[in-house]
Design a protein around this nucleic acid. Structure first.
Length: 110
DNA sequence: CGTCTGACGTGGT
DNA sequence: TACCACGCCAGAC
């Protein structure tokens, strides 16, 4: 468990229902602007253990990033139940649903 | 060790 | 706007 991992978990847990964040935003907020792919790994390995709202994490285009179709369908359902509306291109409008986290550590700390 | 890979991001065309 | 290529970085092999 690295500091980065702990921060990512904390940030994701802060996302309220009905809001979403992109992988890049989470990585940047956690202190690693280029660490989007690590966020992906963390989601994969920790989402079960830490009960993370993994479905509120999407890519920068506002799209569901899951490869498997059934997983992508589950994510879309969960978001819909929280009131997040997908447009005709199956994408989320980040200007409306994007969440800006409160950072409780200093950038220098990284 | 070197290589490959991925629920990503960005810039160029 | 859509698509492609390349950059990124840690874990699997």
């Amino acid at each position: 468990m690295t500091v980065f991992t702990a921060r990512v978990i904390q940030i994701i847990q802060q996302i309220p229902a009905g809001k979403v964040m992109t992988y890049g935003q989470v990585a940047k907020a956690a202190g690693s602007p280029r660490g989007a792919r690590q966020v992906v790994r963390i989601l994969h390995s920790m989402s079960r253990n830490y009960e993370l709202p993994w479905h509120r994490i999407i890519n920068s285009k506002g799209e569901i990033a899951l490869k498997s179709d059934d997983g992508a369908y589950r994510q879309k359902e969960l978001l819909r139940l929280e009131g997040v509306v997908l447009d005709q291109q199956e994408r989320v409008n980040l200007d409306d649903y994007g969440y800006i986290p409160n950072i409780d550590w200093e950038p220098e700390d990284v």
